[in-house]
């Protein structure tokens, strides 16, 4: 059953210290900035955060890292021209980094949501990022065992929801949203708008509502209207 919360703060209020949190977005696109900043406000600490990056500028994930709330980042590409918040913590030894090739990161999250206990992937074989991992040769090709990434919470930005939590996304802001929504015990989604149940064409639903626990409406001023997704 989907709960529609009144504010981003209400939506994230129960996330405890030490939680593992999947956070959607590829750089700024699809990043649930308001949910993350609510998490800054609640004061939750010692988080393990899974994201493709490690924050841009000083908002959203960068603000959470800058506030010293993140113990460990699992990501594929932390270093960017505007990742100074992460860079500073990393160089000071105040944040742990697990670097994962982008496709392995996505598939490990997908595997968690799909109940897969691990998978053999060719990506990373023979590189430093496969060191210490089980390797198997299958039909003449080498594969590395990768394990699922499961989380306590997922914070996702979608475009539109209906009242049962079905979601659509916008363009490349979709990125990690659909897989992260499947891989957490509690999935919290911010959307531009919630439409009445029945108003969304079932053929265009990207994330079915079964994966969604909480919704909060955060209108995005910059989002052009309307999209032909319903």
């Amino acid at each position: 059953m989907v709960m529609i919360t009144q504010s981003a703060l209400d939506a994230v209020a129960d996330i405890p210290d030490g939680a593992t949190v999947l956070i959607g977005g590829f750089g700024p696109a699809g990043q649930p900035v308001e949910l993350i900043e609510a998490l800054v406000e609640t004061g939750t600490r010692d988080l393990t955060v899974v994201n493709n990056n490690a924050g841009n500028g000083d908002v959203g994930l960068a603000a959470l890292i800058g506030a010293g709330r993140v113990r460990k980042v699992i990501c594929s590409f932390p270093r960017q021209h505007d990742s100074h918040q992460f860079d500073e913590k990393y160089r000071a030894g105040e944040i742990e980094l697990e670097l994962v090739p982008q496709g392995n990161l996505a598939e490990r999250i997908r595997a968690a949501g799909a109940g897969i206990g691990g998978f053999f992937t060719p990506t990373g074989y023979g590189t430093p990022l496969a060191e210490g991992k089980e390797v198997r040769e299958i039909d003449g090709r080498h594969y590395v065992l990768e394990l699922p990434i499961r989380a306590d919470y997922a914070l996702v930005k979608a475009h539109r929801a209906d009242e049962v939590g079905n979601l659509t996304y916008r363009k490349t802001a979709r990125n990690f949203g659909p897989i992260m929504a499947t891989a957490a015990t509690t999935t919290i989604v911010q959307v531009h708008e919630v439409v009445p149940t029945g108003a969304m064409d079932p053929e265009v639903v990207v994330t079915p509502g079964i994966y969604v626990d909480r919704l909060v409406v955060v209108p995005t001023a910059t989002t052009p209207e309307p999209e032909e997704d319903q």
Binding site: S76, R79, Q80, L97, L99, P101, G103, N104, T123, L129
Partner: peptide, 15 residues
Amino acid sequence: GAIPAVGGAMDLAIG
């Protein structure tokens, strides 16, 4: 001292 970042390079290279 360099902060490592891999992104999709390993997936692309072998894919």
